[in-house]
């Protein structure tokens, strides 16, 4: 009934997918990149709205907005940036067929992601403003929240890679789509954070 389906989960398992059975080449990374282009447009939409508000409002941030605390976000930024390098070491380890290395570095990355989320939670609870305080606070929570959602998804992706890597031979130096997809997504979330940090905290 579904005979024409390229069973994607089987493709993940099939370590010789590049050479392909039935000549199916692997297009999944191409698809992931298209998805990330689309996803980046969501952030561009948010950032554009933020910049327009900044440009057209007589006072920005509006009067009475508390100063943003910078210490936690700076720590968070360094955690996230470092985690991208840590994660890359995991991918390099896999390319050398070192599954343990992959698991070690990815576990550290996931922990760093959780630390980032914890830091953001701390920041939310100690902010002297709420979602509806004024236009700036609404923007702040909407944009950082939407990014936090992406970090959460990234952590779940990394955990699912870890879960799958327990199966012998699931990932190898020639079969690593899941690892690379999770990594490129994580770098994407990292880059978005850097832009967000400059726009929301520094400008």
């Amino acid at each position: 009934m579904q005979s024409s389906a390229v069973n994607e989960s089987q493709l993940v398992i099939d370590s010789h997918q590049e050479s392909g059975h039935h000549g199916h080449p692997d297009h999944r990374m191409f698809g992931v990149i298209l998805f990330l282009i689309a996803d980046s447009m969501t952030f561009i939409g948010f950032f554009a709205a933020f910049l327009i508000y900044r440009a057209i409002m007589p006072e920005w941030p509006p009067e009475g907005t508390p100063e943003l605390e910078l210490l936690v976000p700076i720590i968070n930024t360094s955690i996230l940036v470092t985690s991208s390098f840590v994660m890359h070491k995991g991918q390099v380890a896999l390319k050398n067929n070192d599954i343990q290395g992959l698991q070690k570095w990815f576990a550290i990355t996931a922990a760093m992601g959780v630390a980032f989320l914890a830091g953001q939670g701390y920041e939310y609870f100690h902010a002297e403003m709420g979602l509806t305080t004024n236009l700036f606070s609404s923007c702040f929570f909407a944009v950082t929240g939407f990014h936090g959602l992406h970090v959460t998804v990234g952590v779940l992706l990394i955990l699912s890679v870890l879960w799958r890597s327990r199966t012998e031979g699931h990932y190898s130096s020639t079969s690593h789509f899941g690892v690379e997809a999770a990594e490129i997504y994580w770098h994407f979330v990292d880059v978005i954070w850097l832009i967000l940090f400059v726009l929301v905290y520094l400008l």
């Binding site: 689309a38 939409g45 948010f46 236009l135 909407a142």
Partner: peptide, 25 residues
Amino acid sequence: ILLGTPVLAAALILLSFDLIAGTAF
């Protein structure tokens, strides 16, 4: 579709906040 639809999504998410959560974007 890839370049436009996500921007609409962003607008609708903010509109939804205005509608439900009482923000004023």
